[in-house]
């Protein structure tokens, strides 16, 4: 199966260096070939499992994190906010 590595990389926000491209392409195709071993199945499939329902959380406020703790791992901070390159949209 031919895989559009550049398209997938773009979706995943990865850039693959040109010199690694061929190797990557080959590896991905091998892995996808392995995955293609799965036969088509008629088995009914639903992503819900009502026999194992989720416990919901009560709507009660708990303290938030202090801002210095929240931002202590951020690469760039200004005026209590995280800084990113200018967003146009």
């Amino acid at each position: 199966m031919q895989i559009d590595i550049r398209h997938i990389a773009k979706l995943a926000r990865l850039s693959i260096e040109d010199e690694k491209m061929e190797k990557f392409q080959h590896e991905m195709e091998t892995i996808v070939a392995m995955c293609e071993k799965l036969p088509p199945m008629d088995d009914a499939y639903t992503a819900v499992d009502p026999s194992n329902p989720m416990r919901l959380r009560p709507d009660q406020v708990k303290p938030s994190l202090k801002r210095d703790q929240l931002l202590k791992n951020a690469p760039q901070v200004q005026a209590g906010c995280i800084v990113v390159p200018k967003v146009v949209e």
Binding site: A12, R13, L14, S15, M28, I31, C35
Partner: peptide
Amino acid sequence: KTRSEGFGDEVKRRIMLGTF
């Protein structure tokens, strides 16, 4: 750049497979 420099090849392969 962040993701390409920050992740190793095996992680990239799996992210690519999963995205695909």
